[in-house]
Design a protein around this nucleic acid. Structure first.
Lengths: 366, 366
DNA sequence: TTTAGCACTTTAACTTCACGAGTGCTAACA
DNA sequence: TGTTAGCACTCGTGAAGTTAAAGTGCTAAA
């Protein structure tokens, strides 16, 4: 059965009101809320039908109605209006762009903070690893007699460096030798191709510094490896406490446990386009525009996410991709989250191309 | 008035019991708890006096007694026994030491996780900045035609590097020129001494690449700057939810707000030996052994920490210092926290001296 | 098709009440 | 003089009962 226009309008009003208040919405309240000019009785009839169709739930007989998951899905798909960010809100995002960080990671972290502040939800963010990447060039910088900086440049022009300290006497000549050994043997290959014979060959070539080869190999490949759980950044957790739906400590705990101990899951969720990952966590994925996805928790499974909604999008920046997700109660303000993320993503893509440019601009201004 | 031995024994038993259960302790319960063989009536008399002396509080007439802040202070100072970590617990810490991380930061993060798991509290950790440090040497590594790696070595042999991307054409010669300009003008000085004339001099020397000077200066000095709020790592937040004292969402929120938004305070608290910082946050500092400090919340001020206790210590590692703190309810198990931290600190100091040594050992084993 | 009216349901908030836990005091005891 | 038993008193907790408010569904009228 198709939803009549009027039903849609009523449903939308209910959801809007519920997002505002978090309380079940009654028929009488609706008459004075949206642009609906019908009597409570008529609205009750419509609500009753909407309930039969699975869009509304009743906590109990004499409470108002609460939107079901499918209602939210319909809402984000077609009912939801565009949220116009206020100038103030736009400014907050724009300021972020002037954040003088050359490091991607810092920008993402900061972006997470801004988004959580703006939407009063939790933000999850992380920078996607690009999978198999090989090292295309090694370089070294002398620091002192017992340590040096090992610089690695990957095939995709990622640069990593690591301060290596040793017990051995280091000089320019030694560094040069190490560099040569590394560049001749380790460039363009993955960790799987580092065989014992190769290691022994390198050690032979390294002469006096042979004992350094093994640790260097470990360092080199671990640098480009996934950074483990630590890479999912979370901010604004305390925002959740304002929502009455999280005043139940148990619910909160299951969510926080997820954040604390199971970041791996989150990472999968954020990084994989495979909706199966979402469903395993009790979320129903919903494509939304180009890079935007909305997941809405499934009520009747006991997972941590069953009462939450989540909007996230990927932000391509230079040659890496970041994912930023906004997680809140199921009745979170999807409109605002979507708009904020969209503005953020556009801004970041724009500035990503020119990176340190804002600095050069600064110069011109002076 | 001096505390008699018996009073101390009774007080200790009360605190122990309260740490166990979180419930007010009654006189009758005590007879069967510690090694006290007195009648409830006698204990009541003693308790009554302890209350007059300010060591015990009564939530209301017919509840048991609850230790006051000064009781906790006395407890950690002289009543508390040593907690012997079980073999299992020791193993967890030892395993941590084999964590093959060349980065200090990762070890600290991991240590925080282990500590929070062990004590079922929150751990705060961060690596202390060494204040005013100047750059003693610049180096550069060519990456591609429009970017290079800027390497900075500080007076205290800290190494930082930053990938600088530009719009200008870069080659070895240009890099060499930049390096020279930087080394000749910026080594050994602090940001305050970077004057406009100096900048203009450098720009003149840099010729074609003059526009790069300004951004590079920013990058260079921000690299050694404090890393902002991000540097305080927090783990095990969800542990707090198990304690009934935090089932009140408001208390939780004030704490989490602190973690979320006011990491600066925390950092001050952790990094400064100045007790004033603690008192501003409603904590009463208490020196405890060499590098160990215990702060106990002050009941009657409304700060976030009024219901918490905190044990923390500094761990010197190589040429930096880290601080790890364990924060829990005021009735947290101080014994265990102190022991765990002590073992951790000892282990870390031990391994800090040899840094990458475990790697070299690995080689020898193969 | 819409609306007004009304009976019905259910929860939240408030009272009352009895119970249990723990105290403080007094008097007896060693 | 220090310790203990006994007892009255206090206070919070939980159960049970009651009321008020909010919202629904249904029926009948407009």
């Amino acid at each position: 059965m198709e939803l009549s226009d009027r039903k849609k309008r009523i449903l939308k009003s209910i959801i809007d009101a519920y997002i505002d208040s978090g309380e079940p919405v009654g028929s009488k309240f609706l008459t004075s809320y949206g642009n609906i000019s019908l009597s409570p009785a008529t609205i009750r009839n419509e609500m009753s039908e909407l309930e039969n169709m699975g869009y509304l739930d009743k906590p109990h007989t004499s409470a108002g109605r609460v939107p079901s998951s499918s209602a939210y899905r319909l809402y984000v798909d077609e009912l939801m209006e565009n949220y116009r960010l206020t100038m103030e809100e736009l400014n907050v995002i724009n300021e972020l762009m002037h954040f003088k960080a050359s490091e991607l990671d810092k920008i993402i972290t900061q972006a997470g903070k801004v988004m959580s502040e703006l939407t009063q939800c939790v933000t999850l963010s992380f920078t996607r690893e690009n999978g198999a990447d090989t090292i295309s060039r090694f370089d070294t910088v002398f620091v002192d007699e017992t340590s040096f900086l090992l610089v690695m440049i990957s095939g995709t022009k990622q640069v990593r460096s690591e301060h290596v300290k040793t017990e051995y006497y280091i000089n320019d000549e030694a560094l040069c030798a190490i560099r040569r050994v590394l560049n001749e043997n380790l460039t363009g290959i993955t960790l799987e191709n580092v065989t014992m014979p190769l290691i022994m060959k390198m050690e032979a070539e390294a002469g006096r510094l042979a004992p350094l080869i093994n640790p260097i190999i470990r360092i080199a490949f671990s640098c480009f490896e996934t950074e483990g759980d630590g890479s999912v950044k979370i901010s604004g957790l305390s925002n959740l406490l304002s929502y009455p739906e999280f005043s139940d400590v148990e619910k909160l705990r299951s969510l926080m446990d997820m954040f604390d101990k199971k970041k791996g899951y989150l990472k999968n969720l954020l990084s994989s386009p495979d909706p199966q990952n979402a469903e395993n966590l009790g979320l129903v994925p919903q494509d939304f525009g180009s890079d935007m996805k909305i997941y809405i928790g499934n009520e009747h499974d006991g997972t941590a996410f069953s009462d939450t909604g989540m909007v996230f999008c990927t932000v391509p920046m230079g040659n890496t991709q970041s994912v930023i997700g906004i997680l809140g109660p199921k009745r979170m303000d999807y409109r605002k989250a979507v708009s904020a993320l969209r503005v953020l993503a556009e801004n970041m893509e724009k500035t990503a191309g020119i990176e340190n440019n804002q600095n050069t601009e600064d110069i011109n201004e002076q």
